[in-house]
Lab assay of single mutants.
Amino acid sequence: DHDVVPEDKFQETLHLKEKEGCPQAFHALLSWLLTQDSTAILDFWRVLFKDYNLERYGRLQPILDSFPKDVDLSQPRKGRKPPAVPKALVPPPRLPTKRKASEEARAAAPAALTPRGTASPGSQLKAKPPKKPESSAEQQRLPLGNGIQTMSASVQRAVAMSSGDVPGARGAVEGILIQQVFESGGSKKCIQVGGEFYTPSKFEDSGSGKNKARSSSGPKPLVRAKGAQGAAPGGGEARLGQQGSVPAPLALPSDPQLHQKNEDECAVCRDGGELICCDGCPRAFHLACLSPPLREIPSGTWRCSSCLQATVQEVQPRAEEPRPQEPPVETPLPPGLRSAGEEVRGPPGEPLAGMDTTLVYKHLPAPPSAAPLPGLDSSALHPLLCVGPEGQQNLAPGARCGVCGDGTDVLRCTHCAAAFHWRCHFPAGTSRPGTGLRCRSCSGDVTPAPVEGVLAPSPARLAPGPAKDDTASHEPALHRDDLESLLSEHTFDGILQWAIQSMARPAAPFPS
């Protein structure tokens, strides 16, 4: 592969990997390779389809078979030569091979799209000592099968071997295949498990690692696999990028399955594409389908809103127990993405979901129960707010008499603000006073009005108090039968009158 990737590009890729991570280095090298001529790309395919690569990765054979028959990708048995050289000459001794072996032994695996480039050397060096003999053996194999790289107009793939297949390693990572398949204008990513390549439709969760975000852009890794992070704060999961590491605690105790298979379609829109997988259930989501939507993949363990709600429900009964003089119970939860139609709101002032922060849900004790107040519409209280300059209440639009249902020339009671006709409430011909108009209920007259088809109010509507207090003497005590009587009149003013009279009014101040 030294004929494909020059030394300066190799060093530039290593520097970019240390600065921005393996995914960015892979993407940059792939983009550079696509700008080369067809001879360089053909050399790339020839390096990929060597015999030892085909033996190690069985899924490469179907890719090789898909090439046109007129494309010669065979390799000479006596060494490598550029395709432009007409004579089959043995190339001179390859010093770059020693360079590659020494550099890969030092860096474990470079971040390139060629056999030198995919593992994360920093994480491997940190986690190597417990498994040094086995990992050293794996390093000797890295130059042979560490990076199976493929690129063409139909298929483009980048393979990364790992030393996680050490025997006896619980939940060992089998390997990473960062794979971009450009077929019919689409893009897919796969993962390699035990020599087999699994596409998103049959993606397997190998051991402790999972394909957290099938994305090839942005600074985030394709698999949430930063070796420096180790395990999740809650004892979460091992990262795919942690090559040759000792077994780590796999999943939280509440995880239903340690080796679950995540779905390959969004649980909201039932469509495929780039998904984020939940650590607590097999569901996966688009970032845009979450509520609120996320802009980037959160670091650490992530769970959907259903799993978060289940966790909150487990903690909430203990938080609601009476604990005198104790601060509110704080339950730190990872930043969760909410699927459509589901929402768990945190306290005000918290950062938005999706940031690399930890939301704190506070379970406050329930407030003391209070008697429910009568629910009145805002339009129902409008007549009470229509007060004239002299303190006389004006008529609201649409006000109707509670007896006849007519809204023409209605009066407004100064005591309960109900609309009424003087002739309907006082049919006996009582003279109307000039000021202080009161309806039949507030004036103490319980004589029913002779209106055909309208039920008369119940005599129990009024329960006047002592006459010594004029204001308190007109406080009506309405009961269920009074409400039914008012409802039978089918008037809004009657219902409003009952609601206003049912509310307690402050006692009249004593004259000074």
Score class of each variant (00 low, 15 high):
Q243L: 07
S245Q: 12
V246C: 14
A248Y: 14
P249C: 15
L250C: 07
A251Y: 14
S254W: 11
S254G: 13
L258H: 03
H259D: 08
K261G: 06
N262H: 08
E263I: 06
D264V: 08
C266Q: 04
A267L: 09
C269L: 05
E274S: 13
I276K: 04
I276Q: 08
C278Y: 07
C281A: 10
P282C: 10
A284E: 14
H286P: 14
H286K: 12
L287K: 09
L287A: 13
L290H: 06
L290I: 10
S291T: 07
L294T: 07
I297Y: 05
P298A: 13
S299R: 10
G300K: 13
W302P: 10
W302H: 04
R303C: 13
S306G: 09
L308V: 09
T311F: 13
T311L: 09
V315S: 08
P317Q: 09
P317F: 13
R318H: 06
P324I: 11
Q325T: 09
E326T: 09
E326R: 10
E326A: 07
E326C: 11
P327C: 11
P328K: 12
V329P: 10
V329F: 10
E330P: 08
E330M: 15
G336L: 15
V344C: 14
R345I: 07
P347Y: 14
P347F: 03
E350H: 08
P351K: 09
G354L: 14
M355N: 05
D356E: 06
H363T: 05
L364P: 06
L364W: 10
A366M: 13
A370F: 11
A370K: 11
P372T: 12
L376G: 08
L376T: 10
D377L: 11
D377V: 10
S378H: 08
S378D: 06
L384F: 14
L385E: 04
G388N: 08
P389D: 15
G398M: 07
A399D: 07
A399T: 07
V403I: 14
V403G: 09
V403Q: 08
C404F: 03
D406V: 08
T408C: 13
V410T: 09
C416G: 03
A417V: 13
F420I: 03
H421Y: 03
H421I: 01
W422L: 10
H425E: 06
A428T: 04
G429E: 04
T430N: 06
S431E: 14
R432P: 07
P433N: 04
P433L: 11
P433W: 14
G434Y: 04
T435F: 10
C439L: 01
S441N: 03
C442Y: 02
V446H: 12
P450M: 14
G453H: 13
L455K: 11
A456G: 09
P459T: 14
G465A: 11
P466L: 11
K468V: 06
K468Y: 08
D469S: 07
D470G: 08
D470R: 05
A472H: 00
H474Q: 08
E475T: 07
A477H: 05
H479S: 09
L483C: 06
L487D: 08
L487S: 01
L487V: 04
S488I: 05
E489F: 03
F492D: 02
G494I: 10
L496H: 00
L496D: 00
L496G: 01
Q497D: 03
A504C: 05
A507I: 09
F510G: 05
P511Y: 15
P511R: 05
